[in-house]
Simulated assay, not measured.
Amino acid sequence: MADHNIIIDEWDIKLDKLLSELKTCQEQKKFKSCSDCHEFFECELRKKYVIAVYESMNKGAGGGFEF
């Protein structure tokens, strides 16, 4: 059986924290998604979450979104 070590770094911790905050906000507003909210484009929490997702993907290396 292979030994799989799970490494949680600072970016994943930040992402998990913001995801939890985002879900709490959605629950408080009784939304299943941020897209249901009238603050969708102006929401600072959502903007921070999107940045955290990107940083978690690139581990702080910077750069742009490249697909």
Results as ranks from 00 to 15, higher is better:
L22W: 12
M1C: 08
E10K: 15
C43E: 04
W11C: 10
E44I: 05
G62I: 02
S33Y: 10
E10M: 14
N5F: 05
I7P: 00
W11V: 00
G64Y: 08
G64K: 12
F31S: 08
F41I: 06
V53M: 02
K30C: 12
Y54S: 08
E44D: 14
L19I: 11
G62M: 01
I6P: 05
C34V: 00
F41E: 08
A2R: 13
A2E: 09
R46D: 04
W11D: 03
R46C: 13
F67I: 07
H38Q: 07
E39L: 07
K48C: 03
N5K: 14
E55W: 00
H4E: 15
S20C: 08
N58V: 10
E44M: 05
Y54Q: 00
M1Y: 12
F65V: 15
V53S: 00
N58L: 07
S20H: 08
K32Q: 12
V53E: 03
D12R: 15
L19Q: 15
G64T: 10
D9I: 02
Q26Y: 06
M1V: 14
G60C: 09
C34Q: 01
L15P: 02
C43M: 07
Y54V: 04
G64R: 11
H38I: 15
F31N: 08
D3M: 09
K17F: 13
I51C: 10
C34E: 01
I51A: 13
C37T: 00
E55H: 05
K47E: 02
C43S: 04
D9V: 04
K59V: 06
G62Q: 01
D12S: 15
L45Y: 03
L45S: 03
G62D: 11
C34Y: 02
E21G: 06
H4V: 14
S35A: 03
F67W: 08
C25T: 02
K23R: 14
R46I: 02
D36H: 12
D9Y: 00
C37G: 03
K47L: 07
D36I: 07
V53C: 01
E21L: 06
C37Q: 00
C43F: 01
V53H: 02
F67K: 07
D9E: 03
G63V: 06
W11N: 09
L19A: 12
E21D: 11
I13A: 13
E39R: 12
K14D: 13
M1D: 14
M57R: 11
I7A: 09
M1R: 13
I13Q: 15
S56F: 10
Q26M: 12
H38K: 10
E10Q: 09
S33I: 00
S35W: 04
A61F: 08
V50R: 11
M57Q: 06
E10N: 13
Q26K: 14
I6S: 07
F40T: 00
G60R: 00
M1G: 15
K32F: 10
E55T: 01
G63C: 05
F31P: 06
S56D: 13
H38R: 11
